[in-house]
Every structure is written in structure tokens, then in C-alpha cells.
Write a protein that binds this DNA or RNA. Sequence first.
DNA 1: ACTCAATAGTTGTATGATACAATCATATAG
DNA 2: CTATATGATTGTATCATACAACTATTGAGT
Lengths: 147, 147
Amino acid sequence: MSEESLSQIELEMAVLSRRIASVSRNKREENLVRAAYLLLFQISTHGPAGVKGLAEELQLDISTVSRQAASLDQKGYIKKVPLPQDKRSYLYEITEEGKREMTEYQQIRREKVNELLNGWTEEERAQFGVLLKKFNDSVKVYWSKGD
Amino acid sequence: MSEESLSQIELEMAVLSRRIASVSRNKREENLVRAAYLLLFQISTHGPAGVKGLAEELQLDISTVSRQAASLDQKGYIKKVPLPQDKRSYLYEITEEGKREMTEYQQIRREKVNELLNGWTEEERAQFGVLLKKFNDSVKVYWSKGD
DNA sequence: ACTCAATAGTTGTATGATACAATCATATAG
DNA sequence: CTATATGATTGTATCATACAACTATTGAGT
């Protein structure tokens, strides 16, 4: 039951949250914002999708995704494809420029993470990656039921 | 150099960031907000401090801390103590009620984390705690120099 | 076939943590 | 004694988000 790991995770999550909140504000991000990045990533890995599906996948409100998508569309990173069989629906698909932009942003992020993990051993990196993913998965499960 | 761990951490951090952004919005938090919680925690573990010191410690803008402190003060969780030798300065110290509130909030958070980490082994929890702390420390170092 | 409910998406509005800039009061240096 | 520095507060803007209201289209039941 180890109170200690529990307390540590609880506290460090709080710390990380604040850092993240801070970084997403003051960083004059280039073209892509983190939120939009994940949207691009989703489309790019799972193919074209409508806002409803994207919202579910990303666990965001539809309105939020709608705005993000509109913004990406306006920048030319994704494009709206009408569905013939349902005139209410669209699919957003990623454009070549969108792919380029996403990859570039991803590269920048990876470099930053790489600098950040400067003194880390390969073992630690690998473990952290795995556990972080596990954590996110746990959160996803936890949220989709109750709460 | 393992591109893989790097990519994984990079991506999962993005995911976690969005989740955190999401949770801090839609959760009708009780009395304490995460940001304020860390402020209380800081005062409670490191003793009374002024907003300037707190802002440095928490790596936030002074104005942000000032508002958070004012809010906590107003709720009676911390109190302002004037410094006799410098009439511009105050120390904020935690009140009994503040301690109680902080502990209670902490307890709730721990329970949530505990539920979240439901299927995790003790080994994984311990590792994750350690690595998460290491990550936060790395971020702190990374930020305090350049960037 | 007509009406009404369901559904996909957009838009209006509010919120909350944050940063930056301006300001106020006090302190310190020249 | 004045000018500058410093601690703190307050004004303003931003941004991702949620919820609610709305529009347009679809489908279901009679």
C-alpha cells in the first residue's frame, strides 16, 4: 500500500501540472499549440475523422475540438471533406503541409525532451516512457467510467 | 539515444498535459485549487514567506502568487504577518485551518491517485514516483538556466 | 408524407490560471 | 534630499476549455 510512493506521485503530479500550465501560457508557441498538435497527431495516425469522433478520442468537448479544427483548417493543416451521405457531417483530413508542420513541431518537442533528460540513463528513460504511458492509460480508463 | 523512449515520453507528456488542462477546468474543485494547494504546501513545508520568495520557489510570476495568496488569505488558510523592519513586506504563514484544509485536500488527492493506480504493482508505483520527481527536478534545472 | 426527436457541427459566453505592465508604498544610495 | 530600487498589488490580455444555445440535416413513428 506504500503511502510513500502514493504521496510522492500525488505531489509530483501537482507540481508537474503547474509547470505544464505555466509553460503552455507563456511560451509564445510557434504555429502549433499543444492541443492542436494532438489533434493533428490523432488524424495523422488514425485517419480522417469528424469532430465528434475526435472529441471522444481526445476526451474533449465537441465545441473545443470544433474550434481547434477550424483553426487548423484556416492554417491549411487539415481540410474539411463533406460526407455525401450525410450533409451534416464532415471529415477532417490532414494536408501535406499539416504533416510537415506536425513532424517539425514533434521534432522540436523531442529535442527539448532530449535536453531535459540530459543526465538520465537509457534505462530510466525507457522506464519513464512506459510508466507515463501506463499512467495516461489508467487516467483514460478511470475517467471513462464514473467521475 | 533510443528514439523510441524519447518519442514516447514526448507524446505521453503532450497527452498528459491536455488531460491536466482538462481536469483543472471542468472539475468543480472544492475549496482548494491545485495552484493554491502547492502554495499552501510550500508555506507549510518551508515556513512563512513573502510573495516574491514564493514566486521564485514556485516558478510563477509574482502577480500570480499575489492573487493566489490573497485568495487563500481571504479564506483564512494563510495569514499576512507584517515585517517590522520593512513596512513593504509581509510574510504569509499558514493557519491551523489552512493546515487542516491542506491535509484534507491532500488526502482526497491521494485517494484518487490510489484508485487511478489500481492495477499497478508496488514496484511500478515506486519507480514512477521516483522518475516523476526526477523529471520535475530536471524541468526545474532546465528552466532556471536558459530558455 | 408530415411532424418531431435525434444528431453533427458551430457559435456565444463564462471561467480560471497565467503573464506582463503600471502603480503604490517604502527603503536605500549618492 | 532626491533618485532609484524593491515588495507587493492591481489592471488588462490571453488561451484552452466547458456548457448552453443554436442551425441544419437526418430518421422514426404514425
